[in-house]
Design a protein around this nucleic acid. Structure first.
Lengths: 134, 134
DNA sequence: CTTCATGCAAATAATTTGCAGTAAG
DNA sequence: CTTACTGCAAATTATTTGCATGAAG
């Protein structure tokens, strides 16, 4: 939790219970949608309103502390911003796995052939995870 | 337009004016969001309601005639389903370009290192398009 | 203390649904 | 003719905002 206090302080944001609980929840789950965050945080702070949740999510995104994760056929989810990675989405259990892989050569191919300058990418692989495969 | 009539017939869907106009509109723009579709189709058929638009979009998606395109920091858009491709999103003009590129080697690397079986992918590259670069 | 964040209620936006009438095949 | 589709209005769900109170630093 100290980690998040520092991040908030660095952005001149106050470390409220609600904020810390939201960050902690997202961190714990890895990828989670608004309602699930609300349910989780609500258990600890039943007074927290959805307005506060929405405001915090939006603020934390604009300070680049959180990132939205928009997956095909899924409600929008959120994650703590971390080093660039791709997402593996299991069709079967709907779990989202982070995966770190070099994408430079793909990006270079695209740059060379399209004239488009790439600054960053968002990649989702749909399929079946190790556990669901059997 | 004949092309869409055939597609609809193949799926046992009636070729209504509204449906054809929606498909034609999405096809013309390439990538477009709900409100922009509504505005466009409304000009031709002022009686069309948003309920009909939403119902059609959902139906056409479930018959795999349309696909959703969820881009970072953008309203959800839709496109006609075509052969697999990636999206190049310009930060400057917000245009979305389709780009065809081989992703097999990337997918193979991921499969080998993660144990995750990939069925299909969704890739967005954010950056600056040729026109905006100058 | 001062400022920023919260909670509540109300406003607004987005999406879905029921149902009677209409058009496609 | 028959069935699926549409339009309308109402219901539901999602998100934002104003303002008075409360907590963080």
């Amino acid at each position: 939790m100290e980690r998040f206090k520092d991040v908030l302080k660095a952005n001149n944001l106050k470390s409220t219970h609600q904020r810390l609980a939201i960050l902690d929840c997202i961190d714990t789950y890895g990828h989670i949608d608004i309602d699930a965050i609300y349910d989780t945080v609500f258990k600890k702070y039943p007074s927290m309103s959805k307005a506060t949740l929405y405001r915090n999510i939006n603020d934390l995104i604009s300070f680049h502390i959180l990132e939205e994760v928009k997956l095909p056929n899924q409600k929008q989810q959120y994650e703590i911003r971390k080093i660039p990675h791709i997402h593996l989405l299991c069709k079967n259990c709907a779990k989202v796995e982070d995966f770190f892989v070099e994408t430079h050569s793909l990006m270079e191919t695209i740059t060379l052939n399209s004239g488009f300058t790439i600054s960053n990418s968002f990649i989702v692989m749909n399929g079946t995870c190790k556990e669901c495969k059997v």
